[in-house]
Nucleic acid binder design. Structure first.
Length: 276
DNA sequence: CGCCAGGCTTCTA
DNA sequence: TAGAAGCATGGC
């Protein structure tokens, strides 16, 4: 990867193919918005970014060189060789088709706290509504930025009552949000400490939070902590796993998370893909 | 109206 | 330990 900086703009080349559309609208994150000119605007950890592609180059605008190295390079997983990854995945036929369908997907390394809250909201919910609910959460309790709102801090969400969450439409997840945000804000539960634990221990710890089961825990570990071996199994992935006879093929070893993301996106948009 | 959505908690056998 | 009911909401 090469990055050239010019003011508030980073011009990034020598990366394997990236599609912003497939990456930012494949159900792993919920906050990015596509503009009319096909660029994407997002706020991560309070930092704004406008992203667009130009041929094989990725352009990030509204950022600093410091935030690129400290945040965005990692966020977009720019150092990973996705071409090699897809080659390996393609040993399996279903995965090969999934990678062919959306070869520009990247596994985002998101803010652990945002992933933690977002995927609590995601349970038994559809992506359109998840986006709307998170949007409301940021508008109501997030810090106003030049463009849009930052994701609310643990303290901001800990101060919200269960009734308030309910009136915003969070349904039975209102109570989960309340207790989860209080646990983090008080320091009783530390997302940072999860990094030092084994994946198995971290998952157990996450599942001690009311409202977090195996699937949401896997999402937090994969999307928030970069645990690439985690494979969240929602209703779509359960169908995929059933087609595989219970587990992903050996060629996904160590990268079950990214494999899962290609498969999830593929079957959700091509429900007939599993009928073959 | 019923069914479904990036599921979880609780109850039951 | 496995399986099913109940849960809020909105789109279809």
């Amino acid at each position: 990867m090469k990055a050239v900086f010019d003011g508030n703009r980073a011009y990034i080349t020598d990366i394997s193919y990236i599609s912003l559309k497939d990456t930012l609208d494949c159900g792993q994150c919920f906050r990015w918005k596509e503009c009319e000119d096909k660029s994407w605007e997002g706020i991560v950890k309070g930092e704004f970014c406008s992203a667009l592609t130009e041929g094989d180059a990725l352009i990030l605008e509204g950022i600093t060189e410091e935030s690129f190295w400290g945040l965005w390079c990692d966020y977009f997983d720019l150092e990973r060789d996705y071409k090699a990854l897809i080659n390996t995945f393609s040993q399996d036929e279903l995965l090969r088709r999934a990678c062919l369908y959306a070869p520009g997907i990247r596994l985002l390394k998101q803010d652990p706290w945002e992933a933690f809250i977002s995927f609590i909201i995601s349970q038994n919910n559809n992506i359109t509504r998840i986006r709307g609910l998170i949007e409301k959460l940021c508008f109501e309790y997030g810090e106003k930025k030049n463009k849009g709102y930052a994701f609310p801090t643990p303290k901001a969400l800990a101060d919200v009552s269960v009734n308030e969450y309910s009136s915003l439409g969070f349904g039975y997840r209102a109570e989960y949000l309340s207790t989860a945000s209080k646990a983090v804000a008080s320091g009783e539960f530390s997302l940072d400490e999860l990094i030092s634990l084994s994946t198995e221990e971290a998952k157990k710890r996450l599942m001690q939070i009311k409202g977090i089961g195996p699937k949401v825990a896997d999402c937090v570990l994969l999307f928030g902590l970069g645990k690439m071996e985690c494979c969240p199994a929602d209703v779509w992935m359960k169908r995929v796993l059933a087609a595989y006879g219970g587990k992903l093929p050996p060629c996904t070893k160590g990268a079950e998370g990214p494999a899962q993301q290609f498969l999830f996106h593929y079957v959700r948009n091509n429900p007939g893909a599993l009928d073959l």
